[in-house]
Design a protein around this nucleic acid. Structure first.
Lengths: 345, 345
DNA sequence: CTGAAAGCGCTTACAG
DNA sequence: CTGAAAGCGCTTACAG
């Protein structure tokens, strides 16, 4: 059935050498315009496509990028953090625009890092995307480093860790939501989300949160911070435990998914959002807009992020210098912070 | 910097021939256990990885699958239908479990089908995923067919179109939501979603909807069906135009995204869901659970779908016979149909 | 502008 | 059980 044409077949039909075919097909100015057109014509008729494996082998690069997505293990596979999905989309777009294919792999943090894309020449570079316990994969970063792998990380740039990072300014984002809550009149706060070294993004948001409170002379009681990984369920449980001891004016959540869970926890106490407690999230995932109570949140420009990630990885591959980059966050005000008019329902 | 070891380097160090190295690394029983272990040991120390390009070229297959995702062009890139995302996740998992890498590409229906993965030997087979105007890409299917490409389509099996399809029984799903609405006591209906040949999934849902009404002797006035592609905005507009002439008991929507827009339209009329009008969707996307009014919808088992898609494509690649498959749908009842107790808020 | 030739790094008959 | 050799289909110096 499938009997794919090779460059030799075309050479034969065009009455030229195989080298000439190869040149013509890559638009080499070396070959005569007429011959070139003729060759292209034949190639088209035969539905000829350059064999990537052969071409990559010869050229020693693959024209493909690999995206490694890792997350805290969750029971439900379909619950991939929607923020990453959005990133996935923009990275796919950006790499295709740059003429690269994209290999996608979901990695469980517990797994061995078996997908040695770059080592096996399947990809020219790797993009690392994921929340989760940083400490769990930190050593893998060193391993990549040691192997000379070209890779880029989405997340908070950090002096203590290897590699280049592109991320959103989580510290600033934390400041901005909190400031807004303050302006609206809230005075006592809870923070939901883990803030250890394992989750630098969340920690930065928390630091920003604290900074904003400090600036107006409010001292945050750290008993009002509860750890939660970025799932609705974790948010629900953490918020629930927090609310047992104390009912603050507002709950600042480290992610939208957490905020959704927190809202559920508030409701389960018979309280209302935002009337009794304001809740804010982070990420501006799609649900945040359509949720029971539309979420005030912080938007990270995923479009731009994808482009930045790809263009910088490409630079890295070309051995050009690349440095960390921090994108500015953008506050999005909706109902859940208690300032907008609640929708009639 | 990067000076990757080859099988020759290892052969040299182990004092054997390169062929033996290759055999040992692929666990060939032909090579002596001790030699094999020694070779593996050295390979590990050198962080050697088989060059995929060379190996694929030689073996004439790539051990990778390609996923082509296409959608109606929408202005916002981040608005990928969440249902597909879920499919993306399960397909990635399934193909990695089968030892295949996954190449992902978003295709705009307007684009040329430039990503000739299989033709260029980058992938052994292709999975086609997308809603959208079927007629727009139908000819491309014939093209794939003609080229002998191994591909599988997610969607409604259809006698008139080429290729094998794996899909969910949309007809049955349409019957089930509608039956449920009938049981709850609704008697007059609107249907939002395009139902032409261009959208066979939606059409099947619509046909099921009609069947369920027929069965209880209700005649559906086709003026109460309004076209909409699968976006919140389209749903909003279609529902709005429908409600101008007529306020039915219930709105059956061809997708959750459409249903979300329909709910917004109902609200904009000053009416309430489900009190004044019930609204149901289709897909069970994540938002449907957390939406202002949790959506009654139809669940398509994406986990299973991903596995089915991958395993059947693999069969196709192995030249084994494959046939269309229809998964059973699953009704999920939440508030929006007006049967559950509204959550206290 | 074109061709003959080498070689990318493997896998796998073929021969022993 | 092991090795020498061919060859997968290209790209690109090298020579003309």
């Amino acid at each position: 059935m499938k009997n794919k044409a090779t460059s030799f077949d075309i050479a034969h039909m065009a009455g030229v050498s195989q080298s000439t075919v190869s040149r013509a097909l890559s638009d080499s100015p070396l070959v005569n315009k007429e011959t070139r057109d003729k060759i292209k014509q034949i190639a088209k008729e035969l539905n000829y496509k350059v064999d990537k494996n052969a071409s990559n082998l010869r050229k020693q690069h693959s024209q493909t990028l690999a995206l490694l997505l890792f997350e805290d293990p969750t029971s439900d596979d379909s619950l991939i953090n929607p923020f990453f999905i959005s990133m996935l989309g923009s990275i796919t777009k950006a790499s295709s625009a740059a003429g690269y294919d994209l290999l996608v792999s979901f990695q469980n943090l517990n797994d061995d890092w078996h997908a040695d894309y770059e080592d096996s020449n399947k990809a020219d570079g790797i993009i690392l995307l994921g929340y989760g316990s940083f400490t769990d994969y930190e050593h893998k970063l060193y391993q990549l480093e040691e192997q000379g792998t070209r890779y880029l990380r989405w997340g908070a740039p950090d002096q203590n860790h290897p590699g280049v990072s592109i991320g959103c300014d989580n510290y600033q984002g934390g400041i901005e939501v909190t400031k807004h809550l303050l302006q609206v009149g809230h005075r006592s706060f809870g923070f939901i989300g883990e803030v250890g070294d394992a989750a630098p993004e969340f920690k930065a948001r928390f630091d920003g949160f604290n900074k904003a409170l400090d600036d107006v002379g409010i001292r945050f009681d750290h008993n009002n911070q509860k750890d939660a990984i970025s799932t609705e369920q974790a948010g629900f449980e953490a918020a629930k435990s927090l609310l047992e001891n104390n009912i603050p004016d507002a709950l600042v959540c480290a992610s939208d998914l957490i905020a959704l869970g927190a809202i559920r926890a508030v409701r389960s106490k018979g309280l209302k959002v935002p009337k009794d407690i304001a809740v804010v999230g982070y990420d501006n995932i799609q649900v945040s807009e359509f949720a029971a109570t539309p979420l005030t949140t912080v938007y990270q420009n995923t479009q731009l992020a994808g482009e930045l990630l790809v263009s910088n990885l490409l630079k890295l591959i070309k051995q050009e210098p690349v440095s960390d980059y921090l994108m500015p966050p953008e506050l999005i005000v909706r109902e859940s912070c208690g300032v907008n008019q609640p929708v009639e329902r």
